[in-house]
Every structure is written in structure tokens, then in C-alpha cells.
Amino acid sequence: MSWKKILGFIGLAIYGVWTLGPYYLTVITSFKKLTDVFSIPPKIIPYADFVPTLEAYQRIFSTRAAWTFVTSLIVATIATIIAIIVGLLAAYGFSRFSNAPMNDERSFFILLTLRMLPPFAVVLPIVTYWVFMGLIDTYFALIWTYTIFSIPLAVWLIKGFIDEIPRSVEDAAVADGYGFGARFRKIIIPLLGAGLAATVALVWLFLWNEFLFALKVAGGKVITYTAYLPQLRLGQRTLWNVYAAMGTLGSIPPLIILAAFRRYIIRLYLGGR
């Protein structure tokens, strides 16, 4: 083995411990009793240092905490579906009707601006808006807010994929006798294929992980698992083991998605499309 390779392995090992170490601590913490969480020296090896217990998980499934995952799932999924449908059509418009009035970099930039602003900059007016509408802390408000914030991302990513489909292929479909809807179903969507799937995954992941709007637009009756975490207290104590158990459960869908789409998601991040 050459020195380069050995150095490479050492580098990757350090990086691995750096990134996976905290995640490991989260996972083992979820199997500890609360009293074991803060012991010094830290207990890091299951069975040797501490006896694993499902106490934290039992607590999740016997309280409202379990339902918060369902809420997250419902909200993220519905918002993703709407954002992808709207984003697909908008991206198609941006890509194909480039001669249309106002279809230029400026309108595209304005669309993306919504995404670039820090959420803290816009959360207050949005909350005010939903309070005014009398819809604060409802599924509708959270899904609507999520949809609005996901559309720019969807448009941006999907437009790149549509740009790659030659117009002549679509012209051929027109000549073959396919209407707009059939063209979308039979030509555009199959050709977007994995790229569209990766976009769906990425949009969904952002929403699954979202915290601020979940807490402020909803966070009462309707509460996602991310917004529920700060409530995990017993008197003055934070229930860190339950916290860790929710983090572990919450990380399962992203891990599955990342494993399934890693090639395409890397492409999305590298190329912006």
C-alpha cells in the first residue's frame, strides 16, 4: 500500500469519527436510562459500560410523541406532492417558453430569493398572516407554508433536467399525436426519471427536517417531531435519552432515502441540477 493510500485512509478515518461519532452517541444514548446519560466517564460501549434499555422508546410510543412522527410524515409528504406538481409545471414553463414575457433571469432570481432569505427573516410576517387568517396551528397552514417554500427548490432543480430534454423529442411527440398531458406522462416524466425522484427526495428531506416553521406556524395542536423535541422535559430536566431516541427514529427515513438516491443527490448538489 502506498503512503498516499495510507494517508487517505487515516484522513477518512478521522472524518468518519468526526461525523459518525456524534451520531453513534445519539444512537447509544437512546438506549440508556436517563441516569446513565451524564455519567462521568461517559458510557460508550453497550453491555460493557451500561445495560441497554428500551425505556426511551417505550416512552415515545406511549405518549403523543409517536403521533408527531405521523404529523411530520403527513405534512412533508402532502407539501412535497403539491410542490413537485406545481414545480414541474413551472419548471416546464421556465424551460420551454423562454420567449414568454417576463421569463428571464430576473423572475427566476425573484423566485429563488424566497429560498435564499434566512427563515428567521420571514417567519414573523408568515405567523402574523396565519393568525390573521385564523388558521395558525393547523395542518393547512403548515402544509401551505411548506409548499410555498419548496416550490423554488423544485423549480430550480427540475428546470435543469427539463433543459436537457431536446425540444425535438417533444415536437416528435406532438407529431405522433400526444396532447400536453400525454406528453408529460409518456415523455417528460419518464425522461426526468431518476432526477425527478431525487428532487422529490430532497424536497421531502428538507421538510422532514424543518424546525422553525414547524414550531412557529404550528407547534401546538399540530406538532411535528422536530417541534416536539424541546417539550421533552420532566420538571427541570431534559429527557436526553428520549431526545436521542426521537433523533434516531427521525433519521431513519433520511438514511433510507440517501442510500437509495445517493448517486443522484450527489449530482444535484454538485451540478445544481
Binding site: 431536446p166 425535438s168 423529442v169 416528435a172 425522461l191 426519471g193
Partner: peptide, 19 residues
């Protein structure tokens, strides 16, 4: 449209459906 006109087109870049 092309279908009602009973027109067929062969495009310069072939425009085959890659999938």
C-alpha cells in the same frame, strides 16, 4: 396540429425517445 393535418416529421437530430 400535425395529427389533424396528417403530417409526419423526421427530425434532424432524429428525436427518438431515449427511454
Amino acid at each position: 396540429g400535425p395529427v389533424e393535418r396528417r403530417v409526419a416529421i423526421a427530425f434532424q437530430d432524429f428525436a427518438l425517445y431515449p427511454h
